[in-house]
Design a protein around this nucleic acid. Structure first.
Length: 207
DNA sequence: AAGTTACG
DNA sequence: AATT
């Protein structure tokens, strides 16, 4: 398995999930989305919608609306608990994260061809000792990651279907985002687009 | 506050 | 730039 050191604290595994594992995971995610439909997050204060649609699985899910960013145990529209995390995701975390506690949240982001995600930090978790693990499915994304301050040097890399990316340690609070989606670059998702899964530990583990 | 544009 |  090829393991690329992108920057200190950032590791990229191209093709971490093979084609069969990707297809099985897509089937799992269809079941997740049937139980917890994709919703359109909105910006705090302004209510401006994101171009990315989201759902979650695991015990906690990340949501955003006029009130703010937060993790919560219930779907913001249905009021139901998030579906459990598929086993393959828990296994990927155990395999790659080098962190001795279970992940609590898996944010499922769907990027249509014209969706973007501006540079941001993942800082709504209580536990920054745990890394963030990202898995990509479907169309390739042009991903950008920099340092912990805006305006610093950044590096761009393509994340293709099946790739894993981990950022932790000194990169845990690195600014990162999605510049664009390369439409038509994968046939995994019949409707096209990209699904990104981000696994996180949210709470401090019990002492 | 993960929006936007601009910039890199 | 620019805000939790």
């Amino acid at each position: 398995m090829t393991r690329l050191a992108v920057a200190p604290g950032v590791v990229h595994w191209p093709g971490y999930l093979g084609p069969e594992a990707q297809a099985a995971l897509v089937a799992d995610l269809r079941a997740v989305a049937a139980q917890a439909p994709f919703f359109q997050p909105r910006m705090p204060k302004t209510g401006k919608p994101f171009s990315v649609r989201m759902t979650n699985c695991g015990t906690l899910g990340w949501v955003s609306d006029e009130t703010g960013y937060r993790y919560q145990p219930l779907h913001p529209v249905t009021g139901e608990p998030w579906p459990p995390m598929p086993d393959v995701l828990t296994q990927a975390w155990r395999d790659l994260a080098s962190y001795p506690h279970e992940p609590e949240a898996c944010l499922v982001n769907f990027y249509a061809a014209d969706a973007r995600m501006g540079l941001h930090q993942d800082r709504d978790e209580q536990e920054f000792d745990a890394p963030v693990l990202s898995l990509s499915l479907g169309d390739t994304a042009v991903f950008r990651i920099g340092g912990t301050q805006r305006g610093g040097k950044t590096v761009s890399l393509k994340l293709a279907s099946g790739d894993a990316l981990l950022f932790g340690g000194e990169a845990r609070l690195a600014y990162h985002g999605i510049d664009r989606i390369l439409a038509g670059s994968s046939a995994l998702l019949p409707q096209g687009g990209r699904i990104n899964l981000t696994l996180r530990r949210v709470t401090k583990p019990p002492a």
